[in-house]
């Protein structure tokens, strides 16, 4: 019997804070041109939604380490499903 209910796990991948995010800088520049002078920085990351049969932290971490994030340049956080 296939499992009908799936669990959605969200993984956020972000560029390490020490690295210049040139895409984010472009977006910040555009927002400042629109008059949002209070803005100092914008950084762009990725949201990856994974639908799995059940949440298994070890397996999800493995997916992040093996493919979803590059530890040289990125950090990731896993949003544990409620």
């Amino acid at each position: 019997m296939p499992k009908l209910s799936m669990t959605t796990v969200r993984v956020y991948v972000t560029l390490k804070p020490s690295l210049l995010d040139s895409a984010g800088r472009t977006v910040a520049g555009a927002l400042q041109k629109l008059g949002y002078n209070e803005l100092h920085q914008a950084r762009i990351g990725k949201l990856i939604e994974l639908q799995v049969e059940e949440y298994d932290e070890v397996r999800i971490k493995e997916m992040c380490d093996k493919l979803l994030a590059n530890p040289v340049i990125e950090d990731y956080t896993i949003e544990v499903p409620r």
């Binding site: 210049l20 800088r25 340049i73």
Partner: peptide
């Protein structure tokens, strides 16, 4: 090669976009 770990480092979006 960098992604495979056969060379160190990584390549990012050009600084000038």
């Amino acid at each position: 090669l960098c992604e495979a770990g056969l060379l160190p480092g990584a390549l990012l979006l050009n600084a000038g976009q």
